[in-house]
Simulated assay, not measured.
Amino acid sequence: MVATTAPSLTEEILRLKKERNAVILAHNYQDKAIQEIADFVGDSLGLAYKAKETEADVIVFCGVHFMAETAKIVNPGKIVVLPDANAGCSLEQSCPGPQLEAFLKANAAKNYYVIAYINCSGHVKALSDCICTSGNADKIVEAAPKDRPILFVPDQNLGSWVMERTGRKMDLWKGACYVHVEFTRDSIQQIKDEYPDAKVVAHPECTYAVRILADEVCSTEKMVGYCRNSPASTFIIVTESGMLHRLEREVPGKKFIPGPTGHCACADCRYMKLNTLQKLHDCLRDLTPRVEMDEELRKRAEKPILRMLELSR
């Protein structure tokens, strides 16, 4: 009798994906194993496009909750699942929907044009005029009405970077990504001194003190193109550690060094790292945890997302 080998976890995931007619979307900050099994790996803007365009019946979103919720907003008829329901986001948490709603009511006379970074809840999106990502924030802000003041939520660091680039004054919500604010001026200067020929590439969610040390400040997607096209051979990457795998895979032959934080050699998002291959397998098998939304809220949240996608083309 010939012994048979049990299918690997990866093989089971691929089988279930086919059986469910599912697509696996993964953010750049996911672990290497998840990135390598995904159908598409990208930043928030790229993933939003893929979620809108997919013909799959099931969207498996390997990222954090607001990303899966965004996919559900633009795909109400599809099943959207994420491997771990507890994969949240400190930026989303920094701007609760009820708090923003109360602020807008209290300041109704200002007639704010609200631009929300995509790292926010569906409730916040529903209160917004347009959504942006780090990859298109300049364009979204420049397209905003000139006769209305802008309220930018929830990331004050991204907002201040956009103000520097566009010259457009905005009121900034006091929110931040807990991962990116852990990079410090001293920690980045120290690694720069250690690798004087390396180019420093930082995400705009970093603080101003870190951004001014960078050779390039850009979204994770634009990091790929910058590193590919630069004549430099070594780069210090100042963002969540998962990005290094994508860079190593798509820009071979160059060296990528994780930017150290004030207390460790690299930066891991505890929420992004909650997702695992086993959880990915289980959510495909069980089609849970599912993202569900109130339809009226979903419709309101969809409008500013579609506005963003149209302006970004």
Rank of each mutant, 00 (worst) to 15 (best):
E164V: 11
F152D: 07
M170H: 07
F183P: 07
E164C: 08
Y178A: 13
F152E: 05
D171I: 12
C177R: 00
C177Q: 00
L172Y: 09
D171K: 09
V162C: 01
G175P: 09
K174F: 10
R185S: 10
A176K: 13
M170Q: 06
L158P: 02
H180D: 08
K169E: 15
F152R: 06
G175T: 07
V181F: 05
M163C: 11
S160Q: 10
E182R: 12
E164I: 06
F183A: 14
D155W: 11
K174V: 12
V153Q: 05
A176D: 12
W161N: 08
T166A: 02
N157C: 09
N157K: 07
A176F: 14
V153K: 02
V162K: 06
V181Y: 00
L158T: 02
K174A: 15
V162D: 03
L158S: 03
Q156C: 09
C177E: 02
Y178L: 13
M163V: 14
E182K: 12
Y178M: 09
M163F: 03
V162A: 04
G159I: 07
P154F: 04
G175S: 08
G167R: 04
A176N: 11
W161L: 08
E164W: 12
L172G: 09
E164Q: 14
R165P: 01
D186I: 12
V162H: 03
R168D: 08
F183N: 13
T166Y: 01
T166P: 00
W173P: 05
N157P: 02
G167A: 06
M163E: 14
V179E: 01
M163D: 04
N157L: 05
D186S: 13
L158C: 00
V181A: 01
R165I: 11
E182Y: 07
P154C: 10
E164K: 15
M170I: 12
C177S: 02
T166W: 03
V153S: 01
S160P: 04
D186T: 13
Q156D: 12
R165Q: 14
C177T: 02
S160T: 13
W173Y: 07
T184V: 11
K169F: 11
R168Y: 05
T184K: 09
R165E: 13
D155M: 11
Y178V: 15
W161H: 10
F152H: 08
F183Y: 15
A176L: 10
D155C: 09
K174S: 13
R168V: 14
R185A: 12
T166R: 04
L172S: 11
E164H: 09
N157R: 09
N157M: 08
G159K: 01
L158H: 05
V181S: 04
D186Q: 15
P154H: 03
T184G: 06
S160W: 01
R185P: 00
E182T: 13
W173D: 02
V153Y: 04
H180Q: 12
T184M: 10
N157T: 09
G167W: 02
M163I: 12
V153N: 01
G159V: 05
G167N: 05
E164Y: 10
D186R: 10
R185Y: 10
V153D: 03
M170N: 04
W161A: 11
M170K: 06
P154T: 04
L158G: 01
T184D: 12
M170G: 10
V162N: 04
Y178W: 08
D186Y: 06
M163N: 07
V162W: 03
D186P: 03
E182Q: 14
P154D: 08
E182P: 00
K174W: 06
Q156G: 02
